[in-house]
Design a protein around this nucleic acid. Structure first.
Lengths: 362, 362
DNA sequence: CTGTTAGCGCCTTCAC
DNA sequence: GTGAAGGCGCTAACAG
């Protein structure tokens, strides 16, 4: 039982062409327009014709060509998503959530990674527009001002995530970087610490500086001396931390402002044989898998990664569906959560199952 | 200095329409076709006209509509990528690499997550075809036979990654699941272990069974008794491991066959207060961030995630560019690597920097 | 080298 | 209810 070959079939190196709406119309003996109406439900069609058309669709295995639809209707049903790196679980989790929302809305996602490169981000965003995406969710890369504030993006739906684009009218979704950091540092202060150092890894200026500000606020409110290290990259971490721990103002607690900084610091502390939380207390911004299974389980500020992606995508679809002038400048800020484990000095609660790190969405 | 408005400009709720090739042709006083030739370089055009055309392009900020191009030329310059979950760092790292290859080839990536659901995977793959993707890289979901072996995918370029699609003619990229597992188990045997249990989490049948076979092979070659647990899910892990460790055949070493299994086992061992590697040795299949910073750093089999994505995408582009009948059934198998840390019982090498977990590509 | 014609597959518009 | 004409923006095919 070989399937019937569409009348318009031609053989190419890639095989037969798929059936078109004209093929269906011919087989059902109606006009292409009538088939279109059955497909889209745009207008009523006599039941007997509907039946003939549906039979033809079945027989020919007809499926509408979405590219042609997009060209004709100027609606691609595709959104774009730009992230710095997918190899970062935080961004990847956000991407997962964005995709789920898109699928729920009948949309597909065109994704790209900027690799934190200004030009890549810009050219890929442009390309997405040329491909007709109806909107873009972007996590701007670190270390530059995104060019997506340019005039050419003026009329396309846009939601910035995690960090802002330098243009006040763009909708944005952030977390409480300042408040979360202040909470974390206050927690350390509550444990009696006075010498607390804030350590960043010199990447993302926006989130890191907000978190540093939260640290500074907490310190100032308690009349404590501020000590911030901002260049604790993978290469320099070891030297900087050794130096810090050997200085006469060695801290009794550390607050790290993002995942990489936490990782770099932890690594060096392990090498130095520093025991958490006895020799030193530590709280990091951003949770990660296995944070609860380290030598000393880590107390962290958890960002709602999945929720961030979900909210950003939902906001994008609001823009798309309302058909509004997109750039309202709505800012949504999501709360973060202090997840208390052992590294801050808290005692483990005996009868409670340990807090699991970030769960995947769905 | 406001930019000139294209002659065809109309205002809509989303702002002006962008300039078309006809606008450029009009301004440069040539035929649209000539503009097209300048754009694509398909044929030579007289220098003076080229200049006029390029000026017009600049002035009108003309950019070609890629949807129209795709429709006309039947080449979307888009590939599809289907992964079970992006929240899994292994898949996300692969996705990152696939995207990089795509961008290098001037292509974009339409991504979707199947959430390990047969129907989602199938319908999303279909949708991608309707959107005109020139090929698909797919990581099939666990727990079912992918429907992408259906006739309707017969003529589209396809590369399966990590696990096979039940159709021998589809190109595939795997890792050495069997060999890697045998190596790991032999390593444990080399440490003198005789009672080694193999633990899986009841997810992906293909990779897990290959890895179990590798374990069994190593055990049989050394006349050791095989003991395989296949249902060590997050819910049951705790009971199963307790039970195992208290039985009179309690193992002296464990081999876990994937990341989740490793995680589940580790978690329970921590709760039970089992010390690695003294009370029990452990090797897990699949490396992860922080594997080197756990209570006892973990010895693992590392999969070349980034390389897997890169190779799969390259193979897809070979299919696309060669314009061959796609389904050759080429199988590429990548080697894995035993990363020795502490949990297997090896002594740390003093003067060496610890092996870092999976690095991100680029 | 350049322009004309035609049409990719679909849907908006307007007759009937 | 239904169909014919036309065009979304672009380029293949063919003249010249």
């Amino acid at each position: 039982m070989t399937p019937p070959v569409p009348p318009s079939a031609r053989s190419t190196s890639k095989g037969r062409h798929r059936a078109t709406i004209a093929d269906v119309a011919r087989m059902a003996e109606v006009a292409p327009m009538t088939v279109s109406r059955v497909l889209t439900g745009a207008a009523a069609v006599r039941p007997d014709k509907v039946k003939r058309i549906q039979e033809a669709i079945q027989l020919l295995r007809y499926k509408p060509n979405e590219t042609a639809r997009a060209l004709r209707s100027q609606r691609s049903r595709i959104i774009g998503l730009i992230v710095p790196r997918l190899s970062d679980p935080f961004f990847a989790t956000i991407a997962h959530a964005v995709n789920n929302v898109a699928v729920d809305n009948g949309y597909s996602v065109l994704i790209t990674t900027s690799n934190d490169e200004e030009e890549t981000e810009y050219s890929q965003a442009q390309l997405m527009v040329l491909r007709g995406v109806e909107g873009i969710v972007i996590i701007p890369g670190a270390g530059y001002h995104s060019k997506l504030n340019r005039q050419e993006f003026e009329h396309i739906c846009l939601v910035a995530l995690d960090k802002p684009i330098d243009e006040p009218s763009i909708d944005s979704v952030f977390v409480e970087n300042f408040e979360g950091s202040r909470t974390a540092v206050e927690h350390l202060i509550g444990h009696g610490h006075q010498r607390i150092t804030c350590i960043s890894d010199a990447s993302d200026l926006y989130t890191l500086s907000k978190r540093q500000q939260g640290y500074e606020q907490a310190m100032m409110e308690h009349d404590l001396k501020i000590n911030t290290i901002t260049d604790c990259t993978a290469e320099r971490a070891s030297d900087r931390i050794r130096q810090l721990m050997q200085s006469k103002y060695a801290p009794t607690a550390i607050f790290t402002t993002n995942g990489p900084a936490t990782r770099n610091v932890l690594h060096t502390l392990l090498q130095l044989g520093v025991k958490l939380p006895d020799d030193l207390a530590l709280i990091g911004f951003d949770d990660f898998e296995f944070a609860d299974m380290l030598q000393t389980s880590l107390t962290v500020i958890r960002q709602p990664a999945s929720e961030m992606g979900r909210i950003a995508a939902l906001r994008l679809f609001e823009q798309i569906q309302d058909d509004i002038e997109p750039h309202i400048g709505k800012v949504i800020t999501l709360p973060v959560e202090l997840v208390i484990r052992r590294s801050c000095g808290c005692k483990p609660r005996p009868s409670t199952t340990p807090r699991k790190p970030r769960a995947s969405s769905r």
